[in-house]
Write a protein that binds this DNA or RNA. Sequence first.
DNA 1: CAGTATCCCACTTGATACTG
DNA 2: CAGTATCAAGTGGGATACTG
Lengths: 121, 121
Amino acid sequence: MRTSRRPGASVCGLDAAMDVIGGKWKSSILWALNEHACRFGELRRLLPGVTEKVLASHLREMEADGIVHREVYDEVPPRVEYSLTPLGVALNEALAPLGVWGREHLLGGRDDHHSTTGDRG
Amino acid sequence: MRTSRRPGASVCGLDAAMDVIGGKWKSSILWALNEHACRFGELRRLLPGVTEKVLASHLREMEADGIVHREVYDEVPPRVEYSLTPLGVALNEALAPLGVWGREHLLGGRDDHHSTTGDRG
DNA sequence: CAGTATCCCACTTGATACTG
DNA sequence: CAGTATCAAGTGGGATACTG
């Protein structure tokens, strides 16, 4: 998958940011983790439709990008918790206006089940 | 290509917005048009690496999404100018924090040749 | 539970050539 | 100049099965 950034890209910060959140489910993962740390299976349940492979890939990329923290607990049964790093929190906040724009202009400003739990629309 | 939105997606405004700017060159096109209206060939020159086909596809999608306006002048030689609609301007503004985030945290806050021409990093 | 390993396909993107 | 048509390729994402 994406081992390095797009060749020749990232001439400006926006391109770099788009690369970080470019995965199909990354913004959803970000939103989910914004509320509280989640275990792998919990994320899978929160994101209906995502496969284990894709979820794992995205999480590894987001961890490599420094926006997600992976905490492993040596227990049985095994437990791993994912949470946002301060960088991830900042990214989520930077994403907020975009979510508002989408809700206002694309969804006709109608309400949805996320709008009261966060500020991302 | 993308005739409709991602099936089953757009549960929140952010997903919808991500779909609109999901194309590889769309954010760059947005940035280019933010400064002034551009002709097709001008955009091609401003975006080294993009092919005519992809540029045309992106422009048609962005026009369909209501963020780009296409003005045709019946002259010879033919002239077509692309510009941002108010919606596109709003999108660009909503994108600004993301560009700042990327420049601050991904590019190490270093300057680049865009940072003085706009607010997107 | 929390992943990895394969295989596969659709879609996006790219290269090139051609047209109004 | 401003595209469209065709062909080719690369990648992300999905389905399924298996492992520590």
